[in-house]
Design a protein around this nucleic acid. Structure first.
Lengths: 129, 129
DNA sequence: ATATGTGCAAACTCTTTGCATGGAG
DNA sequence: CTCCATGCAAAGAGTTTGCACATAT
């Protein structure tokens, strides 16, 4: 990770995530960051999001039907619940995969998606690529 | 669902999915469909995919890092395992959410994503929209 | 015969990149 | 003073849409 300059733009984006814990879309981030540095452009937002993700401050999250969002990386492992009614994303405490189907009381579950990433049996075994 | 004409293009796309059970990307579908009807265009592929999804023949699946894929809707409920090594998507038997962390033997799990969709407690309770 | 489906190209959205200028170190 | 980061605009991917023509019914 090369050294990062502490520009006003980068500070502004950091501040946005210090002010908000919910996952944010790039355009929301641009809008919120412009309140601190009004000349900031979308390309800079994208570049900073990438840099902040690489340096471990942010995590990116691509949610089917919703798009790509960014959130702080220092939250503990969790998953997300998207409410189609209010178009908002909620963090879920704990991990459904480990805990067996935990959904907060009062939440009505329509559907779910589980994606697993790794190495398949064939690739694990022999192949050096 | 309005009546659908049984065009050669639509037949070709149906045939592609009868020949392959793994999830396919739009460009792969175009390529495979062109073997049956070589004049078919990408816009038609997209329109047919939408129509075939609406009529329940296909399901679409947007996988983070991988993109949007389509697969036949008549498979039983399952999830997917993406192997980063071979860039292939595998169907998983059964549902991890219900069965508690099932991963086939030999598969090495790097990471996972779980997305839940529905209505949150607040929206469930009062609000008529 | 008639209206829906198709093919092409243009439009759109989201994201990335090239280049000249600005500012952190 | 030097180089990295920024802002803008253009370029790319992926997907959708307008329009004239083809074709299933």
């Amino acid at each position: 990770v090369p050294a990062q300059r502490n520009t006003r733009q980068r500070q502004a984006i950091r501040k946005v995530f210090e002010e908000t814990s919910r996952p944010l879309r790039p355009l929301e981030i641009l809008d919120l960051a412009q309140r601190h540095v009004n000349s900031i452009g979308l390309a800079t937002v994208y570049r900073c999001l990438k840099a902040l993700t690489d340096e471990g401050f942010l995590l990116s999250l691509t949610m089917p039907e919703v798009g790509t969002l960014y959130e702080r990386a220092d939250k503990k492992h969790h998953h997300h619940f998207y409410c189609r009614a209010c178009d908002q994303l909620f963090d879920l405490e704990g991990c459904t995969l480990e805990q067996g189907g935990f959904v907060p009381p009062g939440y009505a579950l329509d559907s779910h998606e589980i994606f697993l990433y790794g190495t398949c049996a064939t690739c694990s075994t022999g192949a050096t690529s």
